[in-house]
Amino acid sequence: MMTLASYLFISFALFAAGVAVIIARKNIIAMLLGIELMLNAAALNFAAYTRFLNNNYEGHIMSLFIIVIAAAEAAVGLAIVIRFFQIRDSIHVDDATQLQS
């Protein structure tokens, strides 16, 4: 039951769900939710490999940094979303076209 393959499968499914959210949604906050799922999938992978391949806890450090980066990303991303909403009155990606030539 608790084998490397099952952890990899779960992580794969998480990542796929994140990609699906990013493709399917046009709402920026929903896309940020998808990014969180993908980052978690990566972090889970590191922890699983550390457990099953070499037991030296390097993967835990990597997962820790991924969590740190996810937190920073969420903070800055949501700040940008709020600023964007103040300017454009919308949080729809299709409205963010000012830099498009």
Binding site: I29, L32, L44, H60, L64, A70, A71, A74
Partner: peptide, 29 residues
């Protein structure tokens, strides 16, 4: 899942960062 992998510190940090920080921040946004 982290807890089943023996990564207790990661599991606790996951709880703190996500439940206490990111999800509330998302709801706020």
């Amino acid at each position: 899942l982290y807890a089943t992998l023996g990564a207790d510190f990661l599991a606790a940090i996951q709880l703190v960062v996500y439940a206490g920080g990111v999800v509330i921040l998302m709801l706020f946004a």
